[in-house]
Design a protein around this nucleic acid. Sequence first.
RNA 1: GGCGGGGUAGCUCAGUUGGUUAGAGCAGCGGAAUCAUAAUCCGGAGGUCGGGGGUUCAAAUCCCUCCCCCGCUACCA
Length: 481
Amino acid sequence: MFFLTGTDEHGIKMLQTATKEGITPRQLLDRTVPRFRELLVRLNCSNDGYIRTTEERHYQSSQAIWERMAKNGDIYLSKYSGWYSVRDEAYYDEEETRVGEGGVRLSPQDTPVEWVEEESYFFKLSAYQDKLIDLYTRVPDFVLPKERLNEVASFVKRGLRDLSISRTTFEWGIPVPGQRQGTNSDANTKHIMYVWVDALTNYITALGFPDTEAENFRRYWPADLHVIGKDIVRFHAVYWPAFLMSAGIDLPRRIFSHGHILSRGEKMSKSVGNVVDPFALADAYGVDQLRYFLLREIQFGQDGNYSHEAIVNRVNADLANDLGNLAQRSLSMIGKQLGGMLPTPGSFSDNDNILLAAADAMVGKAREMMKTQQLNQVLNTVWDVVADANRYFAGEAPWALAKTDPARQGTVLYVTAEVIRQVAILAQPFIPTSAGKLLDLLAVPADERSFATLDGAHRLAPGTTLPTSAGVFPRYVEPET
RNA sequence: GGCGGGGUAGCUCAGUUGGUUAGAGCAGCGGAAUCAUAAUCCGGAGGUCGGGGGUUCAAAUCCCUCCCCCGCUACCA
């Protein structure tokens, strides 16, 4: 796997923000980009590459894809005039705009628009309408969740206009290669790429494009999964595939649109003042706790709600009470009563076999759900087994067996430990640090923590000496006020 | 305005080839247990399945209509 993320750093908004503060765009970026990178580290995200669209390699890559599209006859020089909203980064037809208070003309989003008339390069998006429809039909899960594909398809079916893909009015962007002069244009006109061409191309730059023989490009392209926010589906599911088709490059296999996290049911916004700082959440609840909450509580692809009460409930109930307490009560019993040695099980009872079978079945179900990125369903499946294990543990009452049937007690504790092992291994992608601690407590070697050790093909080794047990999931208690 | 999704227990949701007393988790209530992070287990309770009408022996599920929420999109002006 190659996990990529990065920042799109060109565009007039960046330039204007910097100018307003009296600094250069680069200075602005030097200040803000590190925060994004810190967040990745803080949230313990898998990350094999970070691409910035202002990097030299990306200039070469963007110019190369431009040339490929041009060579394919899909780029032409023309003239664009219309009402442009800097805030929306979009042009509007005059009929779409209206004059607001103080004579300011506004876009449908109520952002100010200004009249712009300039020479521009265009991409023949209109030529790709049928090919895109064909793509959506042929690969029905090219865009997930399904609702998003329907939206995109209906947008394309309505008809596509060619896309303006360059600007001459400012310079914060990647120069258009091989510029020609239009008949009526200023001899000094210099085109830079309009935001989407260079923004989208980042995905292949990061793998070595334009060197299509680069090791990473050959190995990882086309991408299996391309995750974006639902607000930019159109650009990634319409423009990007069209660009790639034009350039003769394979398309990513799937675009997945994630939803938004709402704060108490409301969209977060600076003006409302309900913006939540992810660093603060991680500090308050813990990184794994935050990750678990978001991935379990929210159906991936849908919007979801965040609230203090919800995260505390979820974290205490699922992590501290159900899994954490189960691990603690079983492992500390092994520590105190069995001298810390994982017992050798006797023959398994029906109850043992039923629970083990449920645990063994988890990975298969999880794999099926992961085919369509149903992350919360994976966690539901795993925690169903945690609940089974708690019922089993209460039913078998190993604390009582200590006096009446020590051999049976050992079997019950062994079975419980084995179930915790499988739960922890499957939980690793979601709560990596905590899952790792659980596996440490079970003395599972680093090279035996892969999914290949699940589904009953592998079991904990009896007789292993376990480290002293310790709590892995602390309960969240309200700070003293 | 059009298209799509949704409105089911206090909260988050599951539940269509129509079929017995509508389900789960969390919260709340009662009980058991006391190995454990006052955690766990068991049990009752809790719902006009958005409103109304219709089809049917039978509707959360099918049809009509209305209301509300969300998304995409268009237009009037």
